[in-house]
Design a protein around this nucleic acid. Structure first.
Length: 947
DNA sequence: ATAGCCTTGAGT
DNA sequence: ACTCAAGGCTAT
């Protein structure tokens, strides 16, 4: 009965930044606009573009139908540089009738004709952008892998009390400024994508490691994704986590903007929206126009970038924050649900809520997208996940994620909902029934994807199925997935008590109803893998009420499996295995690189926060090879941070430190194996900065999301689908082509749309993360919102570029774009980015020479961010004071750790002017024209968002 | 620590 | 008034 609504309002925003030059050098100020949704908007470059794009496509193949939900994309206009406030927010609203997102229901059948399938009872599951949801989910998952005490970032937004009752719970705002460098990545992408571990290459060819289920005990490294494009995104620890980088098109979305529900997952699904589709649909931009109307208060210019939108999108199972009627549309930046919000790729409105579960939805069923139904690429399935693709456009009903062209676009960004259940836990019986239930239907009229429920899966059926984690009886929807009471409690305890479990065994232990008590680390890992969301755990422990985090529904494999052909299942299985192996391998390599001496499998080692699996600081992910199943529980020490509960689950400081200490390479940073963040030699402020660094980084899960397998298959899929489903995909491509930003980046009509979509997605994510990171910075939080906006607008490019250079330290002559993707000077020449890359290489050389360690790196980022000479600052003095504190911390640190090189501090600062000039050059190269009259309300909204 | 049951409270 | 997801309580 209940319809699921996802209302996402996202606003694409173009931010114009006048880049102030920092400290040491003067820098020329360039105004740069950050287009948010590249994909969506027709013209990013120009002033805001407002346009509504409606895409409704439904395709069905046999049982698999993909429905594109009608999306209205509103494009945010560009935001002019200085004005701090008036941003345009684009809202994307999905209401009953129209939802963006296509759900493909599985069946493998022949390719179906495109059409809308309607079923009398379908559950609609609107899915917000896959990207968002996925990203969040993965983010959370990533972070979750390790359960660690979370450090509460004081800086982080404070959930205002206000939120408490009225609005959605404080959501963390995650903004990512992403730079997408586009080069001829399309090609690279394709190539790369294929390589990526589970995930397909993203646009940039970024590889996205899929969620590694296996955590390496001691050290987990996240897989990095590489984007073929120049990505300046913040890389992190070069060794440790690769970050996704984006193009310079940071977009900011209004947190509260609701994204168009692109998809819904009936059960924990990770949805991967096709980029172009997603971007369009989800993109704030898209939403904006209409939404704007609907929501006057929203900023006019939504950022086009889809990525951003994710940030804004909040969906809670029960209700989406965004949708919450109470709360005005205001960006919710609060941390609580930050993760959710961010990656929440799909937020589903209340309608989507588990509560109302899709199951109940009587509307037409949406097509449920089962992993690779097409078989086109066996690759796409994540685990045994079903993918709901919000936009079916490309998919043309091709269930296979891979197949659909649209899917390509989104693949990365779109979240794929995992319906997965491990084989171990899956039950065939229920599955069958459920499978039968899945008759995908899409609402012909709305074109909205039906929820799985619509497919015929009822809530009851879901509840009757086994807990995806242990196989026990499902008691309800808990923390984002349908799970049993014990796993619910386990997850809660683990997160609330900040347990840091480490699997001594080193490998994923079987988690069943009988063995679930044996290895909490693996159990927690599985919880995350299956979709439990850290953000669902309330920091304030408030009881009752509805949660606002975005949820994804995961259907047990058992349920979904029937939809897949044996071959497909096999493929997915193989994929999973490969992914895990690859990840494990990667982790292993990282471990060795980081700290060969510690490599001992047996010992419990503090895990890096970046554990591939969950990304959580927790130990869940880490596995050390050990014959025994013994699991050790580590309680984080964080005395310093300790008590404060992190707004959202964060990697423990300890874990962070560990990561740091074990940090990459030979860098001279403090690398004591015993490292604890309490290390007195590290200035507290610096440590605090480090503690929020994880917010900047992408964990594997995120990367995996971004680089979904789809990308891998995307190329082929696109090709395949192109012929059949040309209409939708072509239209998307057309839109993209019109995007000035893309054009400026060298992406022309010929450019692989998937790549573009991917870039957009990545950019969105990056923006989201950057915003989130900023909000959590101890110094930054004390600065007025308006100034925060100014600072962020001013330095986003520098931050991304710097992080990119930093992580490239270990690859002389090359710049790591992401996930191992690199670009050398020769390649840069081909793409026309030679000047910029050359400078980046030069900067990287300096960083290498200086042996910049991670603490220095994070401190420098903050220093770059806190430029008191940034134009339009209301309280430049305050900013200066904050910067001085950061400078003092860095100085104290360098003197303490590198007494032999007293000039290091000064040398580090001398790199800043280079950095700024490089950014300026990069921006110029991108030929991004500043837009007049734009405003960056979105950004402001983000910053103001609930906190 | 686990897990079943109870209480809470926003949303319907 | 009901639903249901989240936190709390408590026997094991």
């Amino acid at each position: 009965m209940s319809t699921i609504k996802t209302e996402n309002i996202s606003g694409p925003a173009v931010v114009t930044t006048s880049s102030p030059v920092t400290a040491s050098g003067g820098g020329a100020a360039t105004s740069f606009q950050l287009p948010v949704n590249m994909c969506t908007t027709g013209s990013l470059g120009g002033g805001g573009v407002g346009g509504v794009i409606t895409t409704t496509t439904t395709t069905t193949r046999n049982n698999i139908s993909v429905t594109n939900i009608k999306c209205e994309v509103e494009e945010a206009g560009s935001i002019s540089s200085n004005s701090t406030t008036n941003g345009n927010i684009v809202s994307v609203g999905f209401y009953n009738g129209s939802r963006c997102g296509a759900i493909v229901s599985g069946g493998s059948g022949a390719a179906g004709a495109t059409g809308v399938i309607t079923s009398g009872h379908g559950i609609r599951i609107p899915v917000t952008k896959a990207e968002e949801s996925d990203s969040e989910t993965e983010l959370t998952n990533i972070e979750n892998l390790k359960v660690t005490r979370r450090v509460t970032p004081s800086s982080t937004t404070t959930p205002a009390t206000s939120n408490h009752h009225n609005g959605p719970r404080p959501m963390s705002w995650e903004g990512e400024l992403s730079d997408n460098e586009v080069t001829r990545e399309a090609e690279l992408m394709d190539t790369d994508s294929t390589m990526s571990n589970g995930g397909g290459g993203g646009v940039a060819g970024a590889m996205v490691p899929q969620e590694p289920s296996n955590a390496v005990a001691v050290i987990k490294s996240e897989a990095s994704t590489t984007t073929p494009c120049l990505v300046m995104a913040g890389g992190q620890d070069p060794m440790i986590k690769p970050e996704l980088d984006l193009h310079p098109t940071p977009a900011i979305y209004h947190p509260k903007l609701k994204l168009a529900p692109t998809q819904s997952d009936p059960i924990n699904l990770k949805y991967e929206p096709p980029d172009h589709v997603a971007s369009l649909v989800n993109s704030p931009l898209l939403a904006r126009q209409k939404s704007t109307t609907a929501l006057p208060h929203l900023p006019a210019n939504p950022s086009p970038d889809s990525a951003i939108h994710s940030v804004y999108t909040h969906s809670s199972p029960s209700q989406s924050p965004l949708t919450s009627r109470h709360a005005p549309y205001t960006p919710s930046l609060s941390r609580n649900n930050s993760d959710a919000s961010h990656s929440s790729c799909y937020s589903y409105s209340s309608e989507f809520s588990p509560t109302h579960s899709p199951i109940q939805a009587r509307h037409q069923a949406a097509a449920i997208y089962g992993g690779n139904y097409n078989g086109s690429a066996g690759n796409s399935l994540h685990h045994s996940t079903l993918l709901y693709r919000p936009m079916a456009s490309s998919s043309g009903g091709q269930a296979a994620a891979t197949a659909s062209a649209a899917a390509k676009m989104d693949s990365v960004s779109h979240e794929v909902q995992n319906l997965s259940m491990d084989a171990t836990s899956s039950c065939s019986s229920s599955a069958t029934a459920a499978a039968a239930a899945f008759n995908m239907a899409t609402d012909p009229t709305t074109g909205l994807p039906a929820s799985p429920a619509s497919a015929g899966i009822s809530r009851q059926q879901l509840i009757n199925s086994p807990c995806p984690i242990c196989g026990d009886k499902i008691s309800g929807f808990h923390y984002g997935i349908f799970s049993c009471e014990s796993c619910k409690g386990f997850f809660k305890r683990t997160v609330q008590n900040r347990k840091n479990y480490v699997c001594v065994r080193g490998g994923p232990c079987a988690v069943s109803i009988t063995t679930r008590k044996k290895c909490p680390a693996c159990r927690f890992d599985k919880c995350l893998q299956k979709g439990m969301k850290l953000e669902a755990i309330r920091e304030d422990r408030t009881r009752g009420g509805r949660s606002t985090y975005q949820c994804s529904y995961t259907l047990p494999n058992s349920i979904m499996s029937p939809l897949l052909s044996p071959e497909q299942q096999h493929q997915s299985t193989v994929q999973n295995l490969l992914t895990q192996q690859q990840q494990t391998q990667l982790q292993h390599q990282l471990q060795q690189r980081l700290n060969p001496s510690q490599h001992s499998p047996h010992q419990q080692v503090p895990q890096m926060h970046s554990s591939p699996n969950n990304g959580f600081g927790g130990g869940g992910g880490g596995h050390t090879p050990n014959p025994t199943n013994a699991t050790t529980i580590k309680t984080e020490l964080n005395d310093n941070y300790g008590n404060a509960a992190a707004p959202h689950p964060l990697p423990s400081a300890a874990s962070l430190n560990n990561g740091l200490h074990s940090s990459p390479r030979n860098q001279a940073g403090p690398q004591s194996s015993t490292a604890s963040h309490t290390n007195s030699s590290i200035p507290q402020l610096l440590q605090e900065i480090m503690d929020v660094e994880h917010l900047w980084q992408y964990n594997e899960a995120e990367l995996a999301r971004l680089n979904q397998p789809l990308t891998t298959s995307s190329s082929s899929a696109s090709l395949n689908s192109s012929s059949n489903e040309s209409s939708s995909s072509s239209s998307a491509a057309g839109r993209q082509m019109t995007n000035p930003l893309l054009a400026s980046a060298g992406l022309s009509s010929s450019t692989n749309p998937d790549l573009i979509a991917h870039l957009c997605k990545v950019a969105d994510h990056r923006l989201y993360k950057i915003v989130k990171w900023c909000k959590s910075l101890p110094l930054f939080k004390n600065i007025s919102i308006d100034d925060q906006i100014c600072l962020l607008i001013n330095s986003w490019c520098e931050l991304l570029l710097f992080s990119c250079c930093y992580r490239s330290i270990d690859v002389p002559g090359e710049i790591k774009m992401s996930l191992g993707k690199t670009i050398n000077l020769a390649q840069a020449k081909l793409t026309g980015f030679q000047p910029c890359i050359e400078r980046m290489l030069n900067l990287t050389d300096h960083l290498r020479r200086l042996r910049v360690d991670r603490y220095e790196y994070v401190a420098m980022k903050v220093i770059v961010l806190l430029q008191s000479d940034t134009s339009e600052l209301q309280e430049p003095v305050k900013v200066r004071e904050c910067q001085e504190k950061a400078l003092q911390s860095l100085q104290a640190y360098t003197l303490a750790h590198y007494p032999e090189t007293p000039s290091k501090f000064g040398e580090l600062l001398l790199r800043i002017p280079d950095l700024q000039r490089t950014c300026q050059l990069g921006k110029e190269m991108l030929s991004i024209k500043s837009r007049d009259g734009g405003d960056f309300n979105l950004l402001m909204e983000l910053l103001r968002g609930e906190h």
